[in-house]
Design a protein around this nucleic acid. Structure first.
Lengths: 238, 238
DNA sequence: CGATAACTTGACGGCGGTCAAGCGGCGTGG
DNA sequence: CCACGCCGCTTGACCGCCGTCAAGTTATCG
């Protein structure tokens, strides 16, 4: 029986060239591959718990996950959303303050934090990628603070739909006509949209209905959104 | 006349061992010193404008600065606060989406972004420090999202006062009795407190008055706060 | 086809925003 | 030293957005 050449799963990984792994050459990525393992997470399944010892870090290969914090009395706020090629977890010696739960079925590439920390310190190029990613995430998070602190429900919904349109079309890869597609499937339930925007489920529902009745969007099914009048959304986004 | 030994200003800098510079040895910091310059910023003076080309990055030596974003119609949200030893600005090729304005008279150590970027890539230890700092800032920002999205005005104010108490006592350096001091001077006006918490100035004022009348805090002057009943604040922080 | 969860819709009320007036501390100038 | 004016803050009255509570409707799955 002929054995295939030794080759890590990384080399055929769909996010090989987009995740922080892109900083590594073949030899390095094989070394990293030894430390990690692939793992499937089904929709709704948690990957990391709030106030966990944060033993895990991971790259998202496929699917969408939410990062949340909660108050003791059960109020929840989604503080981040991780898409394919995103990095999740908290390296370098701190406990996470966010839970990570899969929104869709997902595949991730997980590492023990201690292993990852050690490997990263020995590979500055990897750390540089991680730094760029973290800086970008901080930018995004800060613009979301503006939304949470100062925008009305209508503005929040409009901004959210525009962002989803951008984000989800990014993940399509190559489109014949570039730019956000007018139609997409939300990875969020109504309650989760509310948790992203700091609203209640009823307010989210009412705003969706309003936009539909104004002819700005169409709602083919519960999870699908089609943007009919993008300019109107931009106008309402504040 | 006897000349003093050549020595960069960095070596006597008060944040030498706390800022990201602590990653560098004497020779390296002298090289970095060649690239930067010290600058005084008076209270209210801007250092970086929103949507700027982000030509500057800086370390805070002394004072407090705010990072803000605004909507076109003038609503403002403070998305971050920089204290001594904090790093400000956006390295690695992106425009900032936040303005930076001094809240108190401040001294910073500024670099052209391009110079800093180049230097950082050649000094992985510096990048590592910057990464740790950015990760910590992201954690803080995310917990602030919880506050903005899900907490009531009373909870916001209580959380804010506790955070200020922690932050400002940190900067005292060595205290005989460790732990947050019960009294401090706010670097914020009422309007700025409102901009941090996503409230209006009137609501902030009313909440302060309420806490005072409940005997939880004392307000010796407009900018000073004394925490009388810390447990009550913790209880109200949600 | 029924059960269950997710969502929508309606009625109502309260938190916090808006508008407006009053207060007070501080700096300036007489 | 005191009078004045300004600016930041406080307080009050009112109201609207959005949260709460409840009922009705639609998808989904056994």
């Amino acid at each position: 029986m002929v054995t295939a050449p030794i080759m890590s799963a990384c080399e055929t990984c769909v996010v090989r060239n987009r995740a922080i792994c892109s900083a590594l050459d073949t030899q390095e990525i094989n070394a990293l591959n030894q430390l990690g393992r692939r793992r499937a997470v089904t929709a709704g399944e948690p990957l990391i718990w709030e106030d966990d010892d944060s033993l895990l870090v991971a790259n998202v290969i496929e699917g969408v996950l939410k990062l949340t914090t909660s108050t003791e009395d059960g109020r929840e706020q989604i503080v981040g959303v991780a898409y394919p090629s995103d990095f999740i977890g908290r390296p370098f010696g701190h406990t996470t303050k966010a839970s990570v739960v899969a929104l869709t079925d997902a595949r991730v590439c997980v590492f023990a934090r201690s292993d990852f920390d050690r490997f990263a310190k020995e590979h500055p190029e990897l750390e540089h990628k991680l730094l760029e990613r973290t800086l970008a995430e901080l930018d995004r998070t800060r613009s979301w603070m503006m939304l949470l602190g100062r925008k009305t429900a209508a503005e929040k919904i409009a901004t959210f739909l525009l962002e989803m349109s951008d984000r989800l079309s990014d993940n399509v890869g190559c489109q014949v006509f570039p730019g956000p597609r007018p139609r997409f499937t939300l990875p969020f339930s109504r309650q989760q949209v509310a948790d992203v925007l700091g609203l209640t489920i009823e307010t989210v529902s009412r705003q969706f209905t309003r936009l539909k009745s104004e002819g700005v969007i169409e709602l083919p099914s519960r999870r699908e959104v089609e943007i009919i009048d993008r300019a109107a959304l931009v106008g309402q986004a504040g």
